[in-house]
Design a protein around this nucleic acid. Structure first.
Length: 426
RNA sequence: GGAGAGGUGGCCGAGUGGCCGAAGGCAACGGUUUGCUAAACCGUCGUAGGGGCGAAAACCUCUACCGAGGGUUCAAAUCCCUCCCUCUCCGCCA
């Protein structure tokens, strides 16, 4: 959400800066409602002032024994008038609020211009793309042959886009979660949290999933509750309606959660395998910083996600999303893409974003600057996957596949696999 | 699920219709005192919106906010209703 005052006074500027990303926004209505709101607010406040004074006068008359009937009658009329204008004000505010919550964040100056993902800019590459003697198999073939992946039974239990892990596959998933959490807590200074994966509407609104993207979420039937699409949602909202001391910033959390996505509109994409599921596991990194620190923090946080891939020896590249590919709430995003041998291309395995004050304003998360005369200000929030666990499993299966059908376990994970060095048929 | 208690400023806590944005205390900040620390004393000490008023800050002023939303009343932290949350007891379940 944008600063309401800035939005009112600079509607045109925001509109221009958003370009194509703001084409759904009814800008004229935003402008009109903004101004209407201010006008009605002024009116109501003046009338309330009148009412206050009048009521004090009634009290004074009662004490001195003067007649009050006339003053009471007059204040009755003022009260009626206030109610009427308040009604209009509320309608205006509701309408404006609903629109304002659907305006995307402004891109940072360093975000490359572009209309879609083809204009994203590769920032760096790490690791060598491997070559295989025979064409590398896709992970689902490897996993099913080993007996560690079972999509048929997952479909029976739940439906399409679900997976069942078995034996060493289940263990590997758990090992990855443990490994990532350990690295981020012990190595990178994040505090681990294990949040609820069901959240309320206000929480979903705080991070920007609602009101615009309700169709992408699973919603519970009898309550106004939603399944989280990412740990970003509960973890960022940890500090909703709080004022943090500057001394606790930057605040860094890591969380493992399952994530749930309806994947509406992605029919036909990645229908096989673990790439795109309704339920998947992710280890998330979340940070709260001062406005001055947030871009430095974005680089750090992205680096923390990269370390996981490096330590697993999986080649990847980092891509800066262009203005047209940027998510709704983000001011700047780096995607980390891992090389998938069977597809012969880099695929997203992490997305690291700085939201600046966009989420903080929605969720009312502030900090009190150390400077004594400074007023509380909104923090900047950031988050990134560190990493998507299922997709890491995909990369491992494909990269470490052997001609005999077995899969080597990356050395870093072996302590988490009871010393096991290789996945073999179960 | 049943019965009861409660939600007030950063924290504790008073306040059952007007003089209450809210006593008092703690914490914090500035100062006096002090060899230093502590204590004592004085002062400051919420957030948001509108206006004065501009590029902005500061300042002044008005309005709102005592869990949320409605209602009663000339006037609501205070009375009524609904909802949310916390706590205690009972039941049930993991």
């Amino acid at each position: 959400m944008h600063d309401p005052k800035y939005l009112r006074e600079n509607t045109g500027l925001i509109r221009t800066a958003l370009g194509a990303r703001g084409r759904d926004v009814p800008w004229d209505a935003v402008q009109k409602l903004s101004e209407e709101r201010r006008a009605l607010t002024t009116q109501v406040e003046q009338l309330r002032h009148e009412l206050k004074k009048g009521s004090d006068d009634v009290a004074r008359r009662r004490r001195t024994g003067e007649p009050t009937d006339e003053a009471v009658e007059a204040m009755k009329r003022v009260g009626d008038r206030i109610k009427e204008i308040e009604g209009r004000l509320r309608e205006t505010e509701d309408a404006l609020n609903d629109l304002a919550l659907r305006i995307p964040n402004l891109p940072h100056q360093t975000v490359p211009q572009g209309s879609d993902s083809t204009h994203n800019v590769e920032v760096r590459r790490w690791g060598a793309v491997p070559s295989f003697a025979a064409p590398p198999k896709p992970h689902w073939e490897i996993g099913e042959a080993l007996g560690i992946l079972d999509f048929d039974r997952a479909a029976k239990i739940a439906g399409a886009r679900f997976a069942l892990l078995r034996g060493a596959g289940a263990r590997l998933e758990r090992a990855l979660i443990d490994y990532m959490l350990d690295l981020h807590t012990t190595g990178h200074g994040y505090q681990e949290v294990l949040p609820p994966v069901i959240v309320n509407r206000q929480t979903m609104t705080g991070t920007g999933q609602l009101p615009k993207f309700e169709d992408d979420l699973f919603r519970l039937r009898d309550e106004d509750w939603f399944l989280i699409p990412t740990a970003e949602v509960p973890v960022t909202n940890l500090h909703r309606d709080e004022v943090l001391g500057e001394d606790v910033l930057p605040l860094r959390y890591t969380a493992y959660t399952p994530c749930f996505r309806r994947e509406a509109g992605s029919y036909g994409k990645d229908t096989r395998g673990l790439i795109r599921l309704h339920q998947f596991n992710k280890v998330e990194l979340v940070a709260f910083t001062t406005p001055e620190q947030s871009y430095q923090e974005l680089e750090r946080l992205t680096g923390h996600a990269e370390v996981i891939l490096q330590s697993l020896n999986l080649p990847y590249r980092v891509v800066a999303l262009c203005t047209g590919d940027l998510g709704f709430s983000a001011a700047k995003t780096y995607d980390i893409e891992v090389w998938l041998p069977s597809q012969g291309q880099y695929r997203e395995i992490s997305s690291c974003s700085n939201f600046e004050a966009f989420q903080a304003r929605r969720a009312n998360i502030k900090y009190r600057p150390a400077r004594k005369d400074a007023k509380p200000d909104f923090v900047h929030t950031l988050n990134g996957s560190g990493l998507a666990v299922g997709r890491t499993m995909v990369a491992i299966l494909e990269h470490y596949q052997q001609p005999d059908g077995s899969v080597l376990i990356p050395e870093a994970l072996r302590p988490y696999m009871g010393g096991k060095e290789r996945l073999t048929k179960e």
